[in-house]
Structure formats: C-alpha cells, structure tokens
Nucleic acid binder design. Structure first.
Length: 560
RNA sequence: GCGCCCGUAGCUCAAUCGGAUAGAGCAUCGGCCUUCUAAGCCGACGGUUGCUGGUUCGAUUCCAGUCGGGCGCGCCA
C-alpha cells in the first residue's frame, strides 16, 4: 500500500517539476501511518520538506501536490492538513484488496524481495565452549535467529554463523577444572585451579571422562581417554562435551546454524598469522615493550591495541579479525554480528583491524547488533543462580521455567539496546496478561471457528467470500483489515532497522484488534454472504498471525 | 576520569531514519456471560517524556550540559 502511494506521489512531483511549478530535487519524503483517523490513513511530509528548500509556504505546495495526484482506486481523497501534511484517506476497496492479497500470497504474505537474493551472514550466540548457555545467550539466540528469519522474509539469502572460541586461555582453564574434578578435587579445595570453573557441569564432564564416554559434536566423535594426566585429551573431550550440550540447547530453542566456525581452525590454517603479517605490510603495526601493536587509533580507537603479546601469543581480537576477514572473503557484503553489550569494546578493535588490512572493507562493516543485560524475575525476586552452572541462570533453566514460545517472544519483545526484565510468572501465565498467550489464543480462536463450521457442516466458499468482502461492516472489522495491511511494512522495517521487537508488538496489536472484533460479531450467521465475508477476514487474520509468529520462531497453535 | 547503552503513566514498555492531540498492556475503578472459548470484551482514571539550555515550521527523537541506572575501559576472552 505504501509503495503504491509513493508511486502516486512521485508521479505528482514529477508532473509538477515538468510543468515548472517545482524546480528542486525530490525531497526524501516519508509516508507514514497516521496516529489518528482524523488525519486519514497515511500522511506524507513532502510539502514540509519542499517548503524548506524552496522558501515557499508548505500548505500551498501541499495543495499543488494534491491537485497533481493522478486518480487511483486506492485513494478516496487526499487533503492538506496541519502545517502542510498531505493526508490520504484510502478507499474501502483498498482494504478489501489487501485481504484478497493475503489469500493470494498465503504463507508468503508479508514477504518481499528487497534483499534480491543477496547473501547476508548473521553471527550470533558464539558462546565459549566452557559452560552451559546462559540467559544472555538466550537473548542473543532469539534476537539473532529472528533477525535471520526477517532477512529471509525480505528476500535475503541468510547464513547463520556460530563462532566457537575453542582456543586460548579459557579453554585451558576448562581443561584444568575438569582435570581437578577427575582427581576428586572440589572447588573449595586449596588445590583447585585459580580461575577454575566451579559449576556442577564440570563434575558431569569429569564423570563421563572417567567412564570412557563418547560424545558427538560438530560432526565428530570424541571418546574419553580416561587418563587423568592427559590434559590434551581432557580438553578435547570437555570441549566436545560442551559443544554437544550447547548444540542441543540451541536446537531445542529452534535455532539451527549453517556454519560453525572454529577459532582453532584459524591457527591451524595460519590465518591469524596472515592477518598480522598483512597488517604489518600495511604499516599499521609496530613493536613496543616486546609486543606487537595495532595502530587502532588511526581508525577511531582511543588507544593502540596489542595484537601479539610478549609471550608470542595473540590477543583475542586478532582471531576475531581473521574470522571476519573470512566472512568478507566468503562474499558477505552484508554481515551482522550480534553481541552482548559487554563486548562493545571489541567492536572498534575488530573494525580497526579490518581497516588496517587495507583491502577496502567498509568502515562500518560488519554491522553490530548489541543486546543489553537480562534480569530474570520470579515471585517478585531476581533469579541469579543456577546450581548446574554455579553462577548464572542457564538457557535451559529459562526454557524449563517459562517455555520455549514465551522465552523466544519475551527475549525479542524489547529493543535490544534496552535492558530486559524477564518475568517468569508472566511468561507462564495462561491469561491475557501474557502477550504470547494472547496472540496464540487469537490464532487458536480462528481454528476453533473452523472446527465449529466443520461440526455444523457449514461450507466456506472462498471464491464467493472474497468477491463479497464488502459485506464486512463496522469499525472493528475495518481495524482488523488495517492491522493486517500493516504487516508487510512491519516486516520490512523490523528487518532493515534490526528491530525484531516491532514485530512482537505488532502481533499483539493485531491480536487485540481481532479479539475486539471477534467479541463484537457473530460469525456463524445464517446470512451466507455475511458469514463467508467474516470467516474470510478471520482466516486472513490467522494467516498473518501464523506468518508473524513463524518469523519469531513461536508456535501458532490450533487450540490452547 | 574516558567510552557505549538506557531514563516516557503506579509497574513493564511503544512511539515508523524530526511530524500533528506521546500510545499499549498490567494494576486501580465501573460495566458485559441462556449465543461460535468470559482463558475474553467495553469504558474510566492515569504524563512538565529525569533536569537545563540550544537547533526549527515542528523535539520523546538531533546537539551541549547536568543528574540517575547499567556495561565496558587488560600483553583476560
């Protein structure tokens, strides 16, 4: 709808320019849904922007534009309002047309070809395999996967990537912790490793190691060597064990990755070294204090950063640069990296490293989506501790407490750069307080209507119904149609701005409009034309709810 | 001290790259069940958008400052 209006406006502006009425460049005008119905259905600010550049009165320009608008079935009338807005009042037929469109496109309604099949890499979660996934990872998984789904819906070829930090000091720490447990040393023992992982899962890994268990992870199989002194074997087993557990959790969460990228492979393939060498060739590094530094201040950082420590090992962000270089070389002109906001410091560093390679990677590549902290509340108190993990609430705990659908929905229901309060009691509640329940219930209600029809042997004539949508009457039905028509715009905006919360909020509003209408009208009336029209709108609503929930990875149940 | 994010109704949050009278839900109060799910619906109440300036036709939005909360500032990852 918006696109059609934009076309009408462009046509009018072009005409005015041709006639010499307006001689300036087209402004970057906005067409938006109005807040109040008095202002019509859509409003455009083109005249206000043109007033700025021409020095003429905005209302006068607006009137000219309105006069120049070509005729259209879409628009009932357009008028000048306020300081110089052009308000569009759409025809009744335009809403009915949109409902027909829903039937026509089915589960593709709301999808677009904006991405034109271009590749986009979406990296998210990327947890270290040193412990179970926690609530922060749950938010990362929900945001990242929903973004991926939104990109798919808008015509992109999406690759979900998971980067495993399976090298470095933390992994060694993990191995030492498991080894300590194998030897029967407990976390409070003086012999316990200084920065050891204290959670109960370490004991589980130790037990499986001693039992000679075999675990499958990343397409490989690792069998425990049982030898308490073989630290390498312990490390391999522990990493595989945790990868398997994380993979299971993510699969349960409805997330499947296309690429699992191992940090360790960057070392075995000498990619880290190549990055450092390349940066050196570009003259973007120097030696000082026995270490090798990146001139990151040349790229907006507040201080230069060490790449290679005096002990010869690399700092964490260098493999990060190498990994992102690999994304670039694999053709992701578009790449999104989803991170916890506590890692925002690395953002400048990684981009600086990529810049320093001197191979033309844009300054703002990759795009980052950062999410803020999650606080879990239950019974009015903050939940902080998981017995299994020791110090934090795990993703598994959360899903067990709140359910998959609620967890996925709640995690994306807020802007990612706002801190999130996750209310377990609300997520569990089977009432209208709970937005997930409310939305799913709307979907189930339509299914219920369908069942009723089946029981009463009432036949729905789709063809006839779509031809007689004009039988729909009243503001409530109109509101449902208007809400439905917003869906494609919401999907587009949510994807482009990386704001999945828009979709969550929208579905709540669509469900609200539907419930209101549902309660105001009888569906299974004797008047066949009226009945078919109402059922058609209900089915269209169900379709949009299902499409939207699908993009959130939330189920659309047929009964509650 | 420096950097990033946040501050909107009693609570949890929206507000479409600067738009018109700042919106929902919950809570509170008042209505609605012989009828397709009342697991719901309708209505009312509720605001100096933390504060002070600035930019302009117009600011919750942009800028400067200030207060408050969170997170970072390592040759840890």
């Amino acid at each position: 709808m918006k696109d059609a209006l934009r076309e009408l406006l462009s046509h009018a502006l072009e005409g005015l320019r041709r006639d010499g009425v307006l001689e300036v460049q087209f402004p970057d005008f906005v067409i938006e849904r109005t807040r109040s119905r008095e202002h019509g259905d859509f409003a455009c600010n083109a005249a206000l922007l043109l007033a700025k550049t021409t020095g003429r009165k905005p209302r006068e320009i607006a009137a000219r534009i309105v006069d120049a608008l070509p005729g259209s079935d879409l628009v009932e009338r357009a008028e000048v309002a306020g300081p110089g807005f052009i308000n569009f009042f759409l025809s009744d037929g335009s809403w009915r047309n949109e409902i027909r469109q829903v039937f026509h496109e089915g589960d593709r309604y709301g999808h677009s070809r904006t991405g034109a099949g271009r590749a986009v890499g979406v990296e998210f979660v990327s947890a270290n395999p040193t412990g179970p996934l926690h609530v922060g990872h749950a938010r990362a998984a929900a945001i990242g996967d929903t973004l991926a789904r939104l990109y798919s819906a808008t015509g992109w070829k999406v690759y979900r990537e998971f980067y495993y930090n399976d090298a470095g000091a933390q992994i060694n720490n993990l191995a030492l912790s498991v080894q300590a447990r194998i030897r029967g040393i407990e976390p409070d023992d003086p012999r316990w490793p200084a920065d050891g992982y204290r959670g109960d899962y370490i004991r589980d890994i130790a037990k499986d190691y001693l039992d000679g268990a075999t675990v499958q992870a990343g397409g490989h199989s690792v069998t425990a060597a049982k030898d308490p002194d073989d630290l390498d074997a312990i490390r391999d087993f522990a990493v595989a064990w945790l990868r398997r557990e994380q993979d299971e959790d993510l699969r349960t969460f409805g997330v499947e990755f296309d690429v699992y990228f191992l940090e360790s492979s960057l070392y075995t393939d000498a990619k880290v070294r190549q990055v450092v060498d390349r940066i050196a060739v570009q003259g973007q590094s120097y030696e000082a204090d026995g270490a090798l530094w990146l001139r990151s201040t040349d790229f907006g950082d507040d201080k230069d950063r060490v790449m290679r420590k005096s002990d010869g090992t690399y700092t964490y962000f260098v493999p990060d640069v190498a990994y992102h270089l690999s994304k670039w070389e694999r053709g992701y002109k578009h790449a999104i990296t989803e991170l916890g906001a506590d890692h925002h410091g690395s953002l400048t560093r990684v981009r600086a490293g990529l810049q320093a390679l001197g191979i033309g990677i844009p300054k703002d590549w990759p795009e980052y989506v950062l999410h803020q902290m999650v606080t879990v509340m239950k019974g009015g108190e903050e939940v902080k501790i998981s017995k299994r993990a020791g110090s934090y609430v795990t993703l598994r705990d959360l899903v067990e407490m709140a359910g998959l659908d609620a967890t996925r929905y709640f995690m994306i229901a807020r802007k990612s750069d706002s801190q999130l309060v996750f209310d377990i009691d609300l997520a569990r509640s089977q009432t209208n307080d709970n937005p997930v329940y409310y939305i799913q219930y709307a979907h189930a209600r339509v299914c219920s209507v369908q069942r009723q029809m089946h029981e009463r042997s009432i036949v729905f004539e789709q063809h006839q119904a779509l031809a007689h949508l004009d039988r729909l009457d009243g503001d409530y039905a109109r509101s449902v149609m208007v809400e439905i028509s917003r869906f494609p715009e919401i999907v587009e905006t949510a994807a482009a701005n990386h704001e999945p919360h828009l979709l969550a909020q929208y579905l709540r509003e669509l469900a609200g409009a539907f419930h209101v209408w549902y309660n105001a009208e009888q569906f299974l009336v004797d008047d066949e034309g009226l009945r078919n029209a109402r059922v058609a709108l209900a089915y269209a609503t169900r379709q949009v709810l299902a499409n939207g929930l699908g993009m959130l990875g939330v189920k659309a149940p047929e009964a509650m």
